[in-house]
């Protein structure tokens, strides 16, 4: 017997993501999904931002193992839940749904999901987020967007991190931004350095504008 399905392979995850999204919308809670390779500086960027923002931010940390990142975020005073995937290379929508039980969502202005460090797999899995932010550190090289396109293609913004190291690197910013724009025309590219604070004002301004545009839809 043949059964015609014509259905997305990831429909189970997509359904869980829709449930998450509906819950977030009920709470009028914007959610960011941060995607990057390991070591791009997601947690360090978050630490810097949490120290500066007056928003009430909750954070879900995704890692294969340890609570190291959650401890760093908790030290900033944010509510945080650590998910250990025990080998899985990405977070999926069901994991997020379970983590949400640990938050009082009505008390949050924003939820940030720091995905497992991996520039490939997390891009496939919708978590129910409002905005997908891909981070790339300049130390990784200006060839990476072309080599790992999926995370850049579906990003709502790209943060280039560790820009304070530019003088020490052979990194061509024009080539880098050009390859990102080629994959995702018009995507905002922001330049930040968590150590010096460079670009944090621009990030805050962009985020507030974007969230206010989302909220007024």
């Amino acid at each position: 017997m043949r059964v015609k399905l014509k259905q997305p392979v990831l429909q189970g995850n997509d359904a869980a993501a829709r449930t998450n999204r509906a819950l977030f919308e009920r709470h009028r809670l914007p959610v960011l999904n941060l995607i990057s390779s390991p070591g791009a500086g997601k947690t360090t960027f978050l630490e810097r931002w949490l120290a500066e923002t007056d928003l009430q931010v909750g954070v879900i940390e995704g890692d294969l193992a340890t609570t190291l990142d959650a401890e760093r975020i908790a030290a900033c005073g944010a509510e945080v839940v650590q998910i250990n995937t025990h080998g899985a290379c990405h977070l999926d929508a069901t994991m997020i749904a379970r983590a949400l039980d640990h938050f009082a969502l009505e008390r949050l202005d924003l939820l940030v999901i720091e995905n497992v460090g991996n520039l490939v797999c997390p891009a496939e899995f919708d978590l129910g987020e409002s905005l997908r932010i891909t981070l790339l550190s300049l130390t990784e090289g200006d060839d990476k967007p072309a080599k790992y396109p999926t995370s850049f293609r579906w990003a709502d913004a790209v943060l280039l991190t560790k820009v304070d190291l530019l003088p020490y690197l052979r990194c061509d910013l024009e080539r880098l931004s050009g390859s990102i724009q080629a994959l995702n025309p018009g995507v905002p590219i922001l330049y930040v350095a968590a150590q010096t604070g460079e670009g944090m004002t621009e990030w805050n301004d962009w985020l507030r504008r974007r969230l206010s545009a989302e909220g007024s839809r």
Binding site: M1, G12, A88, H90, N118, E124
Partner: peptide, 24 residues
């Protein structure tokens, strides 16, 4: 390496479809 995640979701989706259509 996202193939493992995709294969997992594939198995779940086919299991559900098989149940729905009475396939053993």
């Amino acid at each position: 390496m996202h193939e493992v995640g995709i294969a997992h979701e594939l198995c779940l989706a086919v299991e559900a479809a098989a149940r729905q259509h009475g396939l053993g």
